[in-house]
Structures are given as structure tokens and as C-alpha cells.
Simulated assay, not measured.
Amino acid sequence: MKKIAIIGGGIVGSTAAYYLSQFDKKNEIQVTMYDDGVGQATKAAAGIISPWLSKRRNKKWYNLARDGATLLAKIAKNTNMNKDIYNQCGTIITRDSPKKLNELYQKAIERNKETKTIGDVYQLDAEEVKYQIPLLSKSVPGILVTGGARIDGAKFAEHLKDIAKLKNLTIINKKVSINNRGKIQLGDDELAYDNIVVATGAWMRNTLDNLPLKVDIRPQKGQLIEISVNDLEQNKKNMPVLMPEGERDFIPFNDGRLIVGATHENDQGFDLKPSNEVIDDLLASANRLVSGLNQDNLIKIKVGTRAYTSDFAPFFGSIPNYSNIFVGGGLGSSGLTTGPLIGKLLANLILKNKKIDLEQYRKPINNYIQSNL
């Protein structure tokens, strides 16, 4: 019996657990997940899956995000995922000038040639954007890609863990670390596993603190607000998500909720307290596109901590000098898109299932985790 531990039950850990349960055809794997859930970015995340028109120039990141979006659609189909978890409702990205809009459209056409997950591509005028999202009191022209999706990170992770628990996953809601012998430390108990996956996001440095390693991880605070739009006559079902130029992302859900955000705050450390100033800013952004919203529409505030690296690129693989310990982190704001593919790749690496060209997706892990020995 192969014993595997996963530390962290967010987007990477939950997907790794799911694939370890799917790859276990002969009941030869036992998986234990340790997760205290504090500050987890996935639990606070409702996001947009639409990487194809990103301004980022990192080719390896784009490959990871592009194939991550394709994998997400496959997971949703294969696991009969409800649309309140993952919904391929389309994404509209707006631009404030005809030149910028045409450049974006041409980029979308080119990206459509290399991946069909992007779906159909349409150039919309302001009235057509408003037709797609009637909530908008102000709209500008944009590009619609029908393959874009919205995702509820917390529900996604729970859905996959529930499937894995039916096969070979046990979850322990306690905080653990790696001790100086490379074992799991749970209180006074040292626990040995054949392989360990560390997927603790911004807390990875703390998890690995007892090992002689230098870890390039820093926290970034993210806040978003959830607004009720049930009382607006313009509300309709299955609206696309919106990435408006110069404003926060808008994610409308079918049950009359609108998510606005999230922020990217680099100087707040691990602070998980909502900020009134930020909430006012998010509400003001919402009001610039949907008039009439105020504090009475506010349902809840979500706060999480993302993990970033110094060059804003994610990393994954086995740790230098500790070949049985695997990590996946530094995902930043693209975690809901890239995390599932990283989780699957880690499961493959542990079980040596497939020969995959990992270098198309990552820079050397030594760029982010270095031995101090």
C-alpha cells in the first residue's frame, strides 16, 4: 500500500487528491489530506476562466493556463459538475478604443486556431454588450469568447474531494508541517509517508520552515464582494462574466448574485480582515457599471491570501534534495485556472504514470526553492 499525504485542500491539493483516486485502479494507494483551511485563497475565490487574451508574456505560464482551462472543462464534464460550480457562460473583455478592440479581436482569432476551448469569438458593440449583460447601465464595445467560464473555487475543491473520499481519501482538518527529517509533524507525532504533496499556497514557506530551504513565496491579500442584484429588472439567467477595462472583474451568477473583485494587495501580509476602504472601492467600481447599487445590496465580503513568486510565475515538482516531497505553488491570481493542471501533473509525477513534457509549463524549480546546504 502506497501512502501519500497532501498538505492543503485548496485548488492544487483537491485536484491532486481527485486524480490520485482516479489513478488508483487496484486499491493500492492511501491518501491523507491535512487542511486547516485558514486564509485559503481557494475558499475565498470566485473566478473567471479565460486565459487566452491575457496580457502576460510568459509563454510557459500561458501554456499552463491554456491547458488548465481545457482540463477544467473536461473535469466539469467527467464529474457531472453543477453549473453553480463551473459554468461555461462566456467571457466579455472590453476595450475603450476601436484600435485596442481590433487588436484584441485579432489576438482572439489567432488563439482560436491553437485551442478550441476558447470557443467562438465575436466582436460586440456597446449595445450588444449590454444585451448580453442587461445589468449594465453603462457599456463599451468588447470581445465575447464563448468558452470563457465562471467558477466557484470552494465548491470546486469540495466537489473533487467528495469524489476522492469515496475511493481512497481521508481528510484531517488539522495544521501540520514538515519536520527536519522530511516527515509530517502533527503535534508531537511524526508520521511517515511514501510521498508528500505540499500545496499550502502563501503558507508554503512556513510548512517547509524546518528544512534547509529558501522558498520564493510571498503573500498577497485579495478581497471581493458579493452583491444582490435580484431586485434589478434587467437581471437575467446565464450572463457572461465581464472583464471591463479599468474596472474590477464582474461575475454574475444565476441566483441573482454579482461578484466584484478581487483586489491585489501586496503589502498586507497575512491579514484577513476586510477593509472598509477596499469595500467602498469595489462597490464604487460596481456602481460605475451598474447604477443604483449601495451598501444595502452587499451580501458578504470574502478575504483570502494568494501566493506569489518574485517573477509572478507558478512552480511545481519535487523539492531539491527531497525527491519524495512535491510542491505546487506561486499561482497568484490565475490559481483557479492553473491549479487543477498542476494538481494533475503532481499526481502523475508521484505515480510515474505518464511521460509529459513538463518544461513546456514551468521554469526550473530551483528558481523558487533552493537548498541552503
Rank of each mutant, 00 (worst) to 15 (best):
S137W: 09
R56Y: 09
K236G: 03
M33L: 14
G119K: 03
I11Y: 01
R66L: 12
G261E: 03
A284F: 15
K363Y: 14
V327T: 06
L289N: 09
A313P: 00
K354T: 13
Q88L: 08
K302C: 02
E110S: 13
I109W: 08
N206H: 14
I319D: 00
G182H: 03
G261S: 07
Y34F: 15
E359K: 13
N235E: 12
D194M: 09
I133M: 11
E110G: 04
N230K: 15
A17F: 01
I217F: 03
A44T: 00
K59W: 04
N58H: 12
I184S: 04
S177L: 12
D296V: 09
G153F: 06
Y122P: 00
T338G: 03
Q40C: 14
R218G: 09
L298M: 08
H264C: 11
D96V: 10
Q30P: 08
L258T: 07
P364D: 11
N372M: 14
R111P: 05
Y361T: 05
N173Y: 06
L72K: 01
I49M: 05
P240D: 10
A164I: 01
V215A: 04
I350S: 01
L272P: 00
V38L: 14
L272Y: 05
E277H: 13
T337Q: 10
N235C: 09
T200L: 07
D271Q: 09
K221C: 07
L211C: 03
L272H: 04
D125T: 02
L208W: 04
S228D: 14
F315V: 06
G201Y: 02
Y361K: 08
N366E: 15
D36A: 09
N179K: 07
A154T: 07
Y368F: 15
